[in-house]
Design a protein around this nucleic acid. Structure first.
Lengths: 306, 306
DNA sequence: TATCCTTACGGAATTCGTAAGCATG
DNA sequence: CATGCTTACGAATTCCGTAAGGATA
C-alpha cells in the first residue's frame, strides 16, 4: 500500500472514473494509474471499481466503504505536510479562502487587508462560488476556509463557526414611494422585487417570510450578487432586497436603503473548515481577524466535538 | 512520504526511541529505520526527534504535533486493510479482545463460546490485563475490543459502551458470624477484609463507601482477581468482597455470599473500542452477543458523536 | 472510429541490507 | 567497551513511461 495508489483511487472517484484524466491531474501516465489501482485492489483483495468491459463506471460496495477511509488517510497526509511547513517556515505558505460573492465583496476586504500586512509572505487565494461550491472546495481540500451564509451547516464533513449576524435591507431609487410610510411585507409584495437567486445570501429567509405571511412576492429578477441587484434597481426595474452590508450610502448615491431585519429576520454568516484539518498558525490568525469573537481555542473546540 | 517512514516514527516513539528495537519489530535493518526517519524529517522540513549526540532521546515540539497525525494516518491504513479483509473473506480473520480478569474469567465465556461456534474461522485472541493495560492495548491497536469496569471512560481516544450492571457481594466461610444479622458498613469495618487491588473491579467504589461513612476498612489482602480473594477467604484470613458474578454457590461450596449492592453501589462494565476503527462484521456480532442491548447501529452512533 | 483501459517491456531510480565508522554512557 | 546511530556502497528490486493491443460506445 502506498500513497500514490490511494491518490489514484481518490482521483478516479472524483473525476468520474476516467483514468486518463486522473493521469493528467496526477502528472503521470495513464497505464501507471491503471496499475496503481489494480495493485491496491489486489492487495486489499477487493474490487473497488465496477468495470464495464475495460471501462470503469462506478464504485462497488466494497469501494464505497473503502473510499472514505482512503480519503481520511490522504487528509492525514495533507495535514502532515502542512504541520511540517508550519514549523519549517512559520509565516510562509498559502491560505486559500472560498467565499460567496457577498462575503468576498463586502465582508472579507478588511480581514484580507490586515492579513496581507501581517503575513506578507503568505500567498492568499480567494475563490468565489455558490455556497455549495464553497462547501465542495473545502471538502476536496482546495480551500482552507469557507465563508457563506447558506448551506454550509448541512455538510457533515465541515465544522461551521458563526461569525457575525446581519440583516437584509430594502433599496430603492431616491424618492421611490416604498421608502415612505411603514415598511411591511404587504407593502413589498405589491412591488416588483429584485433580489438574490435561490440558495444565495439569505434568499431562503426572504421566501419564508412572504410565505409565512401568506403573500406572493413578485421577484422579477433573481441575481447572484448585490451589485447586479443594485444596478437594476437603479434602472427602475423594481425594489431591491440585499444584505445590509452590501448597501453603502456613500457609494450608492442614487439609492436609499431601509433596514428590513424586522421583516426577514437575522442571518448568521458561517465560517467553515474541514473537519480534521491541521490548520496553520496564520489560518487561525485570519479567522480571529475576520470573526473577532473566535480564537484558536474556540476553533479547536468546535472541531473536537463532532 | 511513505508508510514505512511513518511506521518507523511511530514505533520509535513507542519503543522509547531505540531504533535497534524498532528495526526488530518492523523486521528490517537498523540503518534502514534510521534512514526512514531522516527522510521523513527532511521531507517535512522539521526534526521530529531530539538527538543527544547520535542517540534519540525524545520528541521535539514539532514531533509532538506531528506524531498524532502520523498515528491517525496509520490507523487509517489499518482500517483499510481490515475493510479489505471484511469483503474478501467475510468470516475469517482475527478478533482480539483485551479484558480484566473478572471479565475474562466470569463474564466473557458465554459470549466467547457462542462466537467460536458462529465464526469457527475467526481466530480469537484473549489478552488479560489491568484496566489501564486494556486501554493501552486498544489505543495501540493490539486489541479490537476492550472490556473493563474501571478507567476506560477516561481515555479520549476510546469509545466506551455500557454493557451491564453488577454489584459486589460479601463472601465468607460458611458459618462465619458476619453472615448473620444485617449487613452494614460498620459491621464490615470490624472484619479483616480481602478484596481487589486499587484500580480493579470497583475497588474505587468500595473505598468511597467506607470513606463516605467515615469508616476505616482494614484490607488485609488486596488481590487482582476474585479467585485469589476467594482462596484466602477459604483459608479464614478474612471476609471477601468480590464482584457478584465471581461467586458461584455451586462451585464455591465452602463459601457463602451475600449481595452488597446496597452498600457499595452499582458498577457498570464498559466495552470499549478505539475511536475511528473500522470494525469487522464479526466484531459487531461479538459485541451484540456480549451486550445484548447493543447493536451495530448503536456502536456506530456512539463512535460518531465524540 | 475514437476513446479508454490493459498488457508488455526495458531502462532508470529507488530501496535495502551489509559492513565500517563514530559517539556516548 | 558495549550500545546505538550514521555513513558508504553495491546488489536487487521496484517503479514508471512508452508502445502496442483490445474492448466499447
Amino acid at each position: 500500500m502506498n500513497f500514490q495508489q490511494l491518490r489514484s483511487v481518490r482521483e478516479a472517484a472524483r473525476r468520474g472514473f476516467n483514468l486518463t484524466e486522473v493521469a493528467n491531474t496526477l502528472h503521470t501516465s495513464q497505464p501507471g494509474v491503471s496499475r496503481q489501482i489494480r495493485e491496491l485492489e489486489d492487495e486489499l483483495g477487493i474490487e473497488i471499481f465496477v468495470r464495464a468491459g475495460k471501462r470503469l463506471t462506478g464504485l462497488t460496495p466494497p469501494g464505497g466503504t473503502v473510499l472514505p477511509i482512503i480519503e481520511s488517510i490522504l487528509q492525514g497526509a495533507g495535514n502532515l505536510q502542512r504541520a511540517g511547513r508550519e514549523f519549517a517556515r512559520q509565516d510562509t505558505g498559502t491560505l486559500s479562502i472560498a467565499a460567496t460573492h457577498s462575503q468576498a465583496r463586502y465582508a472579507l476586504p478588511p480581514a484580507v487587508q490586515e492579513f496581507r500586512q501581517r503575513f506578507p509572505e503568505v500567498q492568499l487565494r480567494l475563490h468565489q462560488g455558490s455556497p455549495r461550491q464553497v462547501a465542495e472546495m473545502l471538502l476536496s481540500g482546495e480551500a482552507d476556509i469557507g465563508i457563506a451564509t447558506e448551506a454550509i451547516e448541512q455538510y457533515d464533513g465541515l465544522v461551521a463557526l458563526p461569525c457575525y449576524r446581519w440583516t437584509h435591507c430594502v433599496v430603492a431609487p431616491a424618492g421611490h414611494p416604498v421608502l415612505e410610510g411603514p415598511l411591511t411585507l404587504e407593502r413589498l409584495a405589491r412591488e416588483p422585487l429584485i433580489t438574490y437567486d435561490h440558495g444565495f445570501t439569505g434568499r431562503r429567509r426572504i421566501d419564508a417570510a412572504f410565505e409565512d405571511a401568506g403573500l406572493a412576492a413578485q421577484v422579477v429578477l433573481a441575481a447572484m450578487d448585490a451589485d447586479v441587484i443594485k444596478a437594476y434597481v437603479e434602472l427602475g426595474m423594481g425594489v431591491g432586497l440585499v444584505a445590509s452590508i452590501a448597501f453603502d450610502p456613500e457609494r450608492d448615491l442614487a439609492l436609499r436603503g431601509v433596514d428590513a431585519g424586522a421583516l426577514f429576520g437575522i442571518n448568521v454568516t458561517q465560517l467553515a473548515i474541514k473537519r480534521g484539518s491541521f490548520l496553520r498558525g496564520y489560518t487561525y490568525a485570519f479567522i480571529e481577524s475576520f470573526a473577532p469573537g473566535l480564537d484558536a481555542q474556540a476553533v479547536d473546540r468546535a472541531m473536537a466535538d463532532a
